[in-house]
Nucleic acid binder design. Structure first.
Length: 606
RNA sequence: GGACCCGUAGCUCAGCUGGAUAGAGCGCUGCCCUCCGAAGGCAGAGGUCGUACGUUCGAAUCGUAUCGGGUCCGCCA
């Protein structure tokens, strides 16, 4: 894949090798931090490398002097990749020790050709080397429909997975279903309550003839989930099972109803996810894991290493809970792996903690081939990161890495006014309502316009506005505009071959305007952008990049205004027209390629 | 009281893992439409990167302390 920055970096490294061969440099220098980047100021040239400054410290030489030697070693070399073969460049040394490189414009023209030939596969990278990455996200409790915060995690996780795939990793998307534990029991009881309500509406119901049944059945259970959606679930249960569960002891129905309720809730959640265009490769069940004895096995691993013991935790600092008292518990030595305190594995009633199940789950993921694990969580789980990291370290002896991405809160606004949300008051806004209101593409893009650890304000009025302060619109508009130009061209140049493959053969050397070259430079940065964003696990970077591409394209468009925009591109000169159409297509390809990572459909017209 | 996240232009936010004169949008000032996408663009003003030390050739970026905002806080998930 054509990547001028990567290619030039290889050139620099080979020059360094040659210098080492003749003894100018010692062997075995650490070149990991040697980078080839576009200089911040275009006046400094097309490419810039910090090689001299990175190495100067290692060999105690002046960066400036070393830069001179490297620049001399670079002189006379040629770019070796087929995409640029024969293209020349000049290197010069600048103040602190930078080596600035000016490329012949032909390099950029060749780069544009490569973009057209690659299509939306442009930017695909081998950087991941097919290594396995497991991305676990959403994992919302199966107790109701998703809310907006879940939606953020869903989009971030999904886009991150796509990004990693584009960067050459073997990615698995996974959802962890917390279908064990007290909250599922509470869910089942809530469903039972709604079921009884439903039965009571039936004219021939046994409930009507038995006051004792009605009294016990129609009391809201402890931990009741009050949401309306469970009424539907209760009705569906009645449709399926009739009055079968009526008046039975809880012990009889709790198990079957839990299963029923979780399946119903997961169907709800899958629907919400489908509305966002998100699917998973795997759903893992906590319950199945527990029943398979995975916790015992995982704790066995920890026990072998002497990391499990029974002890009493120090009271938490600051204000104590009212009922605090010292209790002996089964604990994990998390403090040996960077956590503040050792963490409980068993509750005082002898049942496992959620953490114990999580230890088992992460070991399971690791054993399935996940040397690299990414978990996307809500920020309210922040206090949990250290202990899970500690557990992963302990379980795998440091062989696995876990990166937990915490998504900060999403606040809803409408025209600057906060949208008040309260579960109790029933003014709770679900993810589905938001997505139905603004559309999947808008929602997805907006969720990626902030770093995940930055709180996000979501304003219904602003995100649907057709103006420049709306990044979704701005980027989509660039793509639509490019498509519009191509439609005009197809009409006016009927009979000409305007496919990407044909345009790649245009005389691109005619693109000599600084604004045109600047735009190609930007497009050339796409593969680098994919790799660095993937490495950092930060999909939001692409959103900013795409806005930049859109801005440069709009700029170029208006630049043609003197000659009337469309005529600037589709001019009287057939060769120039084809060259400029090639650039327009290049923009469309990169934008579409970026939006594809985001799971956003590029607009062809607006 | 502790842990985690965030303090960058009036506002909302980037800043590519330590580099050159810190950027973008909105807002503000002044420009650019007979017509073909002005749903856009150009130029200008606007900064002690919360504060103070430290690490080094070099810090918005790393470390320590401190102030402000948010989230969470034994067996809840």
């Amino acid at each position: 894949m054509a990547d001028i920055f990567g290619d030039f970096r290889r050139l620099v490294l080979s020059a360094l090798n040659d210098l080492a061969a003749v003894g100018t440099l010692p062997r075995g220098l650490d070149v990991a931090r040697v980078a080839v980047e576009p200089p911040r100021d275009p006046a400094h040239g097309d490419l810039s490398t910090n090689a001299a400054m990175v190495l100067a410290g290692q060999i105690k030489q002046s960066p400036l002097e070393l830069a001179g030697k490297i620049a001399a070693a670079l002189a006379g070399r040629e770019l070796e990749t087929a995409d640029y073969r024969g293209a020349g460049f000049t290197a010069e040394v600048a103040r602190p020790g930078f080596i600035n490189v000016r490329l012949e414009p032909a390099v950029w023209h060749m780069q544009l050709r490569a973009v057209l030939l690659a299509g939306t596969a442009y930017g695909d990278s081998e950087a991941g080397g097919g290594r396995r990455v497991n991305v676990e996200f959403v994992s919302a409790n199966p107790t109701g429909p998703m809310h907006v915060g879940h939606g953020r995690g869903a989009v971030v996780g999904d886009a991150l997975a796509s990004l990693l795939k584009k960067a050459g990793f073997d990615v698995e998307r996974e959802y962890y279903i917390n279908d064990a534990g007290a909250q599922v029991d509470a869910l089942a009881r809530s469903v039972y309550f709604r079921y009884c309500e439903e039965v009571a509406t039936q004219p021939e119901s046994a409930l009507l003839h038995s006051s004792s049944v009605s009294q016990s059945a129609l009391a809201e259970p402890e931990g009741f989930y009050p949401g309306e959606y469970l009424k539907e679930t209760g009705r569906r249960l009645f449709e399926r099972d009739g009055e079968r569960w009526l008046g039975k002891a809880e012990a009889v129905w709790l198990g079957p109803l839990s299963e029923f309720a979780v399946a119903e809730m997961m169907a709800l959640i899958r629907d919400d996810l489908a509305a966002l265009g998100i699917g998973f490769d795997r759903f893992s069940s906590e319950k199945a894991l527990v029943e398979a004895g995975a916790i015992d096995k995982a704790l066995g691993v920890l026990e072998e290493r002497g990391l499990v013991y029974t002890g009493v935790l120090e009271p938490p600092k600051g204000k104590l809970p009212d009922d605090w008292e010292p209790r002996p518990q089964l604990l994990f030595r998390a403090t040996q792996f960077g956590d503040e305190v050792d963490r409980p594995l068993k509750k005082s009633d002898g049942s496992w903690t959620y953490f114990a199940a999580d230890i088992a789950y992460h070991l399971d993921k690791y054993r399935r081939g996940g040397g690299t694990m990414i978990d996307v969580w809500g920020a309210d789980h922040g206090g949990y990161v250290k202990r899970v990291n500690a557990a992963v370290l302990a379980l795998t002896n440091g062989a696995a890495t876990l990166d937990v991405k915490l998504c900060q809160l999403v606040s809803l606004f409408d025209n600057g006014q906060p949208v008040r949300m309260s579960k109790r008051a029933g003014t709770f806004v679900t993810l589905r309502e938001v997505v139905d209101e603004v559309g999947k593409d808008v929602f997805r893009f907006i969720m990626l316009t902030r770093r995940n650890d930055q709180a996000l304000d979501f304003d219904f009025a602003k995100v649907t506005e057709q103006s420049k302060d709306n990044p979704v619109f701005y980027v989509q508009y660039a793509h639509a505009r490019a498509c519009s130009v191509m439609r005009h061209a197809a009409e006016e140049l009927a009979g000409e071959d305007l496919t990407d493959a044909a345009l790649a053969g245009a005389n691109l050397a005619l693109l000599a305007d600084p604004a045109e070259l600047a735009l190609i430079r930007l497009l050339a940065g796409w593969p680098r952008m994919v790799e660095s964003a993937a490495e950092a696990h930060e999909p939001h970077r692409l959103a900013f990049y795409l806005q930049e591409v859109a801005a440069q394209f709009h700029l170029l468009w208006t630049k043609g205004r003197d000659e009337v925009q469309l005529r600037f591109i589709i001019s009287g000169d057939p060769d120039l027209t084809r060259a400029r159409l090639a650039l327009v297509r290049g923009v469309a390809i990169v934008v579409a390629s970026g939006l594809a990572v985001f799971g956003v459909t590029p607009a062809e017209e607006m």
